[in-house]
């Protein structure tokens, strides 16, 4: 276990964290502003990957494919908002869970109907799929590096939007006290549409960036949305800053656990026991972390509204 391997694993954790952040950002905003639990947020991730893959194949150009794919994912997100989510925002959390669960079933099977159950082809453009030399001896996949940079870029953009613009101010106000913002004459529904579509776009972007690495298949959004919920609860609901740091924390802990848990356990409990327990422990690690953090800070690391 040398230092360059640890460094690589930290970068891997950071990269996973950035994908999680892109998905969690929209989730935490929608939740924070509209008090809307959207289980179907992972669907946007799936749509982003599928639509970008399909349009990249159609235009034979990743750049155009990305723009067309994200634009169409955003349009579909808007349609979902218009047809389903708009009605659900005025309902109880449980009805939101039920309705958005139904949406997951619909979109998953629709993808299966249109694109087939098998994973579809989606690879990074040739020029971006090589390695980048971090030091003369340390190479890292360029595409993963791009994901990290894109995540940090989006985080900065979001910080500017939330901290420096009028819309951002309304979003912050909305996540603290929605009724007051409503009473002040702000069209909260329009604000919600804006926040929702923007969040959908970010999740679709995450899917489009992760697509060339993983396998693009109908159920790809299922697990990511669970991790995104872990991220926003750990980070503090409604807090973009919280989501950013929590995503990095979850990503790094998950990767380090997978990389080193079995090896470390071997020195403690012996090789055969470690081979059995190591992978299970590595998978559990983020949930253990979440429980510990929430025991200490029930409102998460960065609570948006202070006291809850």
């Amino acid at each position: 276990m040398n230092s360059s391997l640890v460094l690589l694993q930290l970068l891997n954790g950071l990269q996973l964290g950035m994908v999680l952040f892109l998905v969690a950002a929209g989730l935490t905003l929608v939740f924070g502003v509209m008090d809307f639990i959207n289980l179907a947020h992972g669907v946007q991730y799936t749509l982003g990957a599928y639509l970008t893959a399909a349009s990249t194949a159609y235009f034979a150009n990743f750049g155009i494919g990305l723009i067309v794919g994200l634009a169409s994912a955003a349009v579909l997100g808007y349609l979902l908002e218009l047809l389903v989510f708009r009605v659900l925002t005025s309902r109880s959390h449980l009805e939101q869970v039920l309705g958005t669960f139904g949406v997951i079933l619909i979109v998953t099977d629709a993808m299966k109907l249109i694109f087939g159950p098998a994973p579809i082809s989606f690879s990074a453009p040739e020029a971006l799929s090589g390695m980048v030399m971090l030091t003369p001896t340390l190479a890292y996949p360029l595409w993963r590096m791009l994901i990290i940079l894109a995540g940090v870029g989006v985080a900065l953009l979001l910080w500017l939007l939330v901290a420096r613009t009028r819309i951002g101010m309304l979003v912050r106000a909305g996540s603290t006290d929605r009724e007051i913002v409503d009473l002040m004459g702000v069209n909260i529904d329009r604000l919600f549409v804006l926040v929702f579509v923007f969040g959908a776009l970010l999740a679709a972007f995450a899917g489009a960036m992760a697509g060339p690495l993983i396998s693009v298949e109908p159920t790809m959004g299922d697990n990511i949305v669970i991790l995104a919920f872990v991220v926003i609860v750990v980070g503090g609901i409604g807090s973009v800053r919280g989501a950013f740091f929590a995503a990095i924390l979850i990503g790094v802990v998950d990767v380090l656990g997978r990389a080193f848990a079995t090896t470390l356990l071997k020195s403690v409990i012996g090789a055969s026991a470690a081979t059995a327990a190591g992978p299970a422990l590595a998978s559990m690690l983020i949930y253990i972390l979440m429980v510990l953090i929430l025991m200490a800070r029930p409102a998460g690391l960065f609570s948006a509204s202070g006291a809850t």
Binding site: L5, Q9, A259
Partner: peptide, 21 residues
């Protein structure tokens, strides 16, 4: 080395870094 990954895992960055090393 024998690396056992969780069933359904889609990100192999940690394993590949170890593999390279």
């Amino acid at each position: 080395e024998e690396m056992l990954t969780p069933l359904g895992q889609l990100d192999f960055s940690a394993e590949l870094a170890k593999l390279a090393a």
